[in-house]
Structures are given as C-alpha cells and as structure tokens.
C-alpha cells in the first residue's frame, strides 16, 4: 500500500508516494535524489544519515517518511547559501576535518545541532555530543577543532 506524503525539504514543498516502510533517508535519496545524506550502517548507529527535522538533528534512517508529513526537513544540500558555505561547512573544510568524506554530511548536520544546543561548547562537550556519529578515517581531533571554530563564527 502506498501513502502520499508532503513535507518541506530545504525550503521547498515536496510530495511523493511512498510505502509505509519507506525510511526518510530512502525518500530523500531515492525519491528526491538528495544523495548527500548517506547510509553507513543501516541500523541508526553511525550518524552518516543525520539531517535536521524542525531544526533538530535526527537520524533519517530512524524515521519513516510518513512520520515526516508536514515537517520541515533540512539536508546537507540545503545548508550552503549558493556558493557561500555555512560556517560549519567552511570550518570542516578549513580544519581538514574530513578524509573519505562519507561521514561528513552527517557530521556537519550533527555539529550544527550541537552548537544550536550549546553555543560555546568545550572540547569535552563536543566529544560527548558527537558520540552518535562515527568517523573511521580521522581521530575526531580536527572535527572537534572545526566545531569549536564554527561555533565562534556562528555566534557572531
């Protein structure tokens, strides 16, 4: 059985026909072609699929598309303003806070959520808040530095 869903994604209203079991991440990737949101572990552990729903960072593989009816979704593709990167994106680039890049979109979305909750996080607070996102390439060090730098920029 299929369901019609309607939600706002990156500022635009979108509609689609989905199955009851369709995950939000599948809707984003397969229906809308927004492939910047990645699937890393398929079990809501790694955080590569993190997006924002109504301004909160959430894992899009842990939500059904039908749950998002009428909600406001922001993905990595909706973050930059044209060619101007969001301060968090710029900080990840500047601080070499990425290697293979596969976890990066989810990291960036989680990181913004961290700063939204805590505008001036310490290293320890960042590390604590970042636990739901796994990176296998770096040792998180530059990611922590990037988030700290972006927080300062976002507070301006």
């Amino acid at each position: 059985m299929s369901y019609s869903v309607k939600m706002t994604v990156n500022g635009k209203e979108v509609t689609g026909e989905v199955e009851g079991r369709t995950l939000l991440v599948q809707f984003l990737r397969e229906h809308l072609g927004l492939t910047g949101t990645h699937v890393g572990c398929d079990t809501s552990q790694c955080g590569a699929c993190t997006i924002h729903m109504n301004g909160r960072a959430v894992k899009s593989c842990a939500l059904l598309a039908t749950h998002c009816e009428g909600q406001d979704i922001l993905t990595i593709e909706g973050l930059a303003d044209g060619d101007t990167l969001h301060p968090m994106q710029e900080a990840f680039r500047e601080h070499h806070a990425l290697q293979c890049g596969f976890c990066t979109p989810g990291m960036v979305m989680s990181a913004i959520g961290i700063v939204d909750d805590n505008p001036d996080p310490s290293h320890d607070e960042i590390r604590h808040a970042l636990e739901g996102n796994i990176c296998r390439c770096t040792g998180y060090h530059n990611i922590v530095l990037a988030i700290e730098a972006a927080a300062q920029e976002m507070n301006k």
Partner: peptide, 22 residues
C-alpha cells in the same frame, strides 16, 4: 593543501557509487 574534494564532501556533492543517478 586542502583535500581536493573537501567542498564536495561538506556540501554532500561528492558522488559515491550509491549516489550515482539511477
């Protein structure tokens, strides 16, 4: 030098195989 794909990584525009248009 920054990673050549850094901007594509942070914007979600780096294409991995599962991201290729079907």
């Amino acid at each position: 030098v920054k990673h050549d794909s850094a901007v594509r990584h942070v914007t979600g525009k780096a294409i991995y195989i599962d991201d290729m248009p079907n």
